[in-house]
Nucleic acid binder design. Sequence first.
DNA 1: CTGTTAGCGCGTTCAG
DNA 2: CTGAACGCGCTAACAG
Lengths: 331, 331
Amino acid sequence: MTTIRDVAKRAGVAVSTVSKVINHYPNISEDTIRRVTEAIDELQFVPNAIASSLSSKQSGRIALILNPNTQTQAIDEITMRYMTGAVTRARELRMELLPVFFSMLEEKSVEEVETFLHSQGVGGLIICGMSKDDYVLQRLVAREHFKVVLVDVPISNASTSYVSVDQRAAQADVARKTILENQGPSKDVLYISGKQNGYVSEDRLQGMLDLARELEFNLSVHSGEFSEKKAREITLKYGEVNDIIVCASDLMAIGAMRALMDLDIFHPVCGFDGITLMGYAGKQMNTVRQNFHDIAAEAVDEVARLIGGEQGRAVIMPHELVRLEYMDIIV
Amino acid sequence: MTTIRDVAKRAGVAVSTVSKVINHYPNISEDTIRRVTEAIDELQFVPNAIASSLSSKQSGRIALILNPNTQTQAIDEITMRYMTGAVTRARELRMELLPVFFSMLEEKSVEEVETFLHSQGVGGLIICGMSKDDYVLQRLVAREHFKVVLVDVPISNASTSYVSVDQRAAQADVARKTILENQGPSKDVLYISGKQNGYVSEDRLQGMLDLARELEFNLSVHSGEFSEKKAREITLKYGEVNDIIVCASDLMAIGAMRALMDLDIFHPVCGFDGITLMGYAGKQMNTVRQNFHDIAAEAVDEVARLIGGEQGRAVIMPHELVRLEYMDIIV
DNA sequence: CTGTTAGCGCGTTCAG
DNA sequence: CTGAACGCGCTAACAG
């Protein structure tokens, strides 16, 4: 293993000089920089991340806290996009990402979680999919002992940022598009919402209420709890008496669409998320595509900014409307 | 942050003694162990993993090398199962898992990859989804500079183990079951195989050849390259003239089944993997359920064994036959 | 059985 | 602008 000392010797300078070159310190002569850089290249030197973070106490280590739902693979796709986006960007920024799953935090106190994170040299957190019921996580961000970036949860303070698409606008957009495309007797729309008391659920519901006012249609709302089965049941019950079904997630949209097919009736259905599974519903459907990969990358950037001393803030990511069907998604 | 020194002071012993207690060294009196343990509890001390691995040079850090296919979410489910299984087990063993994606290794030489891994203090690797074309990875394991555990790739030597289900037997099992369940005039079976020159593909094909000999049926083989679309095309062409379609993956089974539905004919189809998506094919299908979560956990155990100095070996995991359909998989 | 001491590889003062 | 010296938190000999 080649160390910083080898590089120093090779370049004929002191170790500290090499360190400064690596970390882009000011006040180093062009000539020294060149010599050191050459030595680094020749020796294929890569700084030891372990030693580096021990010494600097400022480990570019961040924990990516995920809630992989083992129930449905639809969530796997989203979680995986978060992972790849975050891991890739982290490497570009020469930071280290530590995946942590909700299940590993269960039955732990906030203090325990904090000491664990500290013992791992973690300075920042990215939390995906936190709900209002996740008590320890809630307290974790409230205590502000870590720099944290929340994904899809609109909370920000001095050391907390969040990144998310504009849920409210996006929900209205996709529903509007779907309704306008089907200018029939579309007076009654059924909205299958997410979880009561959930962050995104409430925003999306607001979007629907906005739209109902804008387009003046009858809106009936039922909570599908992000469950495909639940959405199916709701559609079996209320699908027939409505003209259009708007769902707060793709999974529920699939459940709704399949229920309609079982009933042998057709109504337009739209979803939210833009997952591949949407192609397996049997019919074309509109949905909101969230770019989870980019969202996670942005979250990494943001946590880096926070660690760099900047204030927390809100980062709104763009979304796009798409229409998915089987032949488009298979490869 | 409470350090080992604080604990030592609190317990009235030397730091090294605390270290020995933590790492379960022999020759420590019951009494000191008790005192140290108490101090640790009272101070809620958790050893700093960074410092520990810097000092011991023997970081329990392992890289989990994955190939997340951004094309289809079916693969996301599998990749995610690998992740959760490995990460969870790693934490139990107090090891650290570093997720690495194939994309991050592209355009890097073996040497570069090795120095990168070394700089990260990585001692062991778990590689999932390596193919015969992944040149750098191939060389990486051949050089034996790391302890590596291969998933689904039957290579083992002094410092390399592999863990996998018995692909050959499993393929024969699921096909046999499917054929025997449909004791009609099932003389002709179409096998849609995986990638030519692939590790598991070859094993699974062998399983089919075994079975063709055993049950004496006509077997025609076409390569679907693990592509849903390809399987669809093959089925559109040859589906009608065969009685049963056996596929080397669930994804292809879905493609085949949907093709049959488009043709408006029915033949039994079976797949391989046991992914949730299988429920969206439209009909019930047999498949082999591989427990990816446990496989990954086993891989972590195995890499720990290798690091502990044991020889490489083959670990065969159990598989089970299941029949999946929509109502079973939705939640 | 326990304590002392010297590093692990690097970042960071602070003189020069 | 450079380099010597110290320390991050811990483990590993070696003394005692």
